[in-house]
Computed example of a mutant assay.
Amino acid sequence: MTGTGRPARTRLLLLVLAVVLLAGGATAYTLRAAGHATAGRTSTAAAPGFTLEDPAGRLYFRDTATGRVARRDPAAPDGRVAGGPVCDRFHAAGPTALCLLRRPGVPPRSYALVLDRNLRELRRIALPGIPSRARVSASGQVLSWTMFATGDSYATSAFSTRTSILDLRTGYLVKNMEQIPLTLGGRRYHAPDVNYWGVTFARDDNRFYATVATDGRTHLVEGDLRAWSARAVRENAECPSLSPDGTRVAFKKKVSDDPKAPWRLYVLDLRTMREHPVADDRSIDDQAAWTDDRTLAYGHEGALWTVPADGSGRARPLVSGASSPVVPR
C-alpha cells in the first residue's frame, strides 16, 4: 500500500506543478503579447512636437530606416528629423495628412490614417492589399489612395489595384473608382479589366487626373467628381502628378519593354498637350511630387532625387534612405 501510494502522490504533485508552471508561462506570454501589441499601437504615432507647422517649403518624407515620417533639416544629424508617425506611404496638404500603414499579422492588415496638421489621428479605415500611392488635395478636403490587390509592382502585368477617394466635407468614401463612367476614344467604355491608380487633384477639389489601364494599355484620364465621370486624354501615361498651378502633369511614360527599366519621367503641358522628358534618363517608378511650380522630387533606388520640371539641368540627390516626398502647403 505504501509502496504504491508514494509514487502516485509524487506523480500527482508533479502534474500539479506542471500545470502551475504552464499557466504561469501562458499568463506571462499573454502579458508580454499584450504589452507588445500596446507598444506597437502607440509606437506608430508621431512624437510630441513633431507637426506639419514648420517653415514653408520644408520637405517631408518617409524615413526608410525608421519607417517614420521625417522632415528635412540641414541643422539636424543626418540632415533630418524623424519624429512623425509610422507610414508606408505619406502625403499632406492644407490641414490634412494621409498615412497608409501596413501592420504585420495573419493576415497582414493595412489602414488609411487621416491625420491633422499636428499628425494626430482623426480617422482610421481598414483596407485590403498593399499600400501603393497616397494623395491629398490642396485644400486637404479630398483624399485618395491606391492599394495593390494582387502583385506588388507596376512593372509586371500580374497586378490589380483598388483606388479609393474620401471626401472629408461629406464623409463619403468611394471604395473603388472602377465604377466611375469612363469615356475612351470619344465613346463610353466598358471592360472588366479597367484598373485605376495614382490620383492627383486640382485646386477646385473636383477635377482630378489618374491612370487607367485596360486592354494592355495605360491612359491619362481627366475626371470630374461632381459629374462622376472620367475621360481619357492621353495614352501611355502613369502615376500623374498635377503641378501646383494646375497647368502641367508629371507622369511616368513607358519607353522600353525591359521589365527592369521600362519608364522615364515626363511632363505634359495641359494647355498645348505637348510633353517632354526631364533630365533624368533612369527608369523612375514613382508618383513624382512638385516641391514648387518648377521642381520635381521622386524616389529612386531607396533615395529621393530632384530635377527641374522644364527638362533643363540635371537630376540631383536630395535625401538618402527616403520615399514619399511632399512639401505641405
Rank of each mutant, 00 (worst) to 15 (best):
G84V: 13
R203N: 08
A297W: 15
P108D: 15
R226K: 10
Y29P: 00
P55W: 09
N206L: 06
L182I: 14
P244G: 03
L17M: 15
E275M: 14
D258T: 09
S241D: 01
L173S: 02
A18I: 08
A45L: 13
V327F: 08
L22Q: 03
S110M: 07
T44K: 05
P55Y: 06
T30S: 09
T42E: 13
Y29E: 05
V233G: 11
A28Y: 10
N195C: 14
T146K: 14
E275C: 01
R58E: 07
P77H: 03
R103S: 04
M147T: 03
A56Q: 03
K253V: 01
Y209N: 00
A28M: 15
R11H: 05
R124A: 15
V319L: 15
V221R: 01
T27M: 13
S43E: 10
A76I: 07
D116M: 14
Y172C: 00
R329E: 11
A303H: 04
D204R: 10
T170H: 04
V142Q: 12
D152W: 12
A34P: 02
V81P: 09
H36P: 00
L17F: 10
A70S: 10
P108G: 06
N118P: 00
A65Q: 03
R135D: 12
D152C: 00
P308D: 09
R203C: 07
T163I: 14
M147L: 08
W305S: 07
A112Y: 11
V114H: 03
A191S: 05
S132H: 04
T10K: 03
P308N: 02
P192H: 04
V19S: 08
S283T: 05
T51H: 09
P7Y: 02
L122E: 15
N118K: 07
A202V: 06
E238P: 09
W145D: 02
L270S: 01
N176H: 11
R203A: 13
A70M: 14
P108I: 08
W197R: 05
R188D: 10
A26G: 07
G105Y: 08
Q141E: 07
L12A: 05
V319P: 08
L318T: 10
R271T: 03
T156V: 11
T163R: 07
G299S: 15
Q179K: 07
V16L: 14
I165H: 09
S137V: 08
D167Y: 09
V136Y: 12
K252P: 00
L13A: 10
G84P: 11
A279H: 00
L59E: 03
N176K: 10
A23C: 15
P328G: 07
S139C: 09
L98R: 01
K253Q: 13
G129Y: 15
G299E: 15
P308S: 12
